[in-house]
Amino acid sequence: MKHLIHTLNKAFDHRVRLGVMAVLMANDTVSFNDLKELLDLTDGNLASHVAALEKADYVLVSKQFIGKKPNTTYAATAAGKEAFRAHLAALEKLLSG
């Protein structure tokens, strides 16, 4: 059991990060505001967790302007998707014991 728990990805050890990755697995790109509403988070909370995922190269951030408003969108990278799938597989393995 102990061994299996160590196969879980450290980058996903927080539920906000798991939530962000879950949204990005189901959607190609998601804006900061949509992400915030979907996960019911504050700006600062979301930003810090997304920054951690970006640092791990799991999330791609693109900043654009719609008119004069800045619009930040996020997408999961191939590495991020693979890591997330591996994490899910590890969770399922834990379940089946």
Partner: peptide, 26 residues
């Protein structure tokens, strides 16, 4: 993301992940 789960409960994690994927895309 209100309901809390302990990081070590894989079933709760999987359930929440599925729920988030579902409500974020549909």
């Amino acid at each position: 993301m209100r309901p809390d789960f302990t990081a070590t409960d894989p079933l709760a994690q999987l359930t929440e992940i599925r729920a988030i994927m579902e409500r974020s895309s549909r």
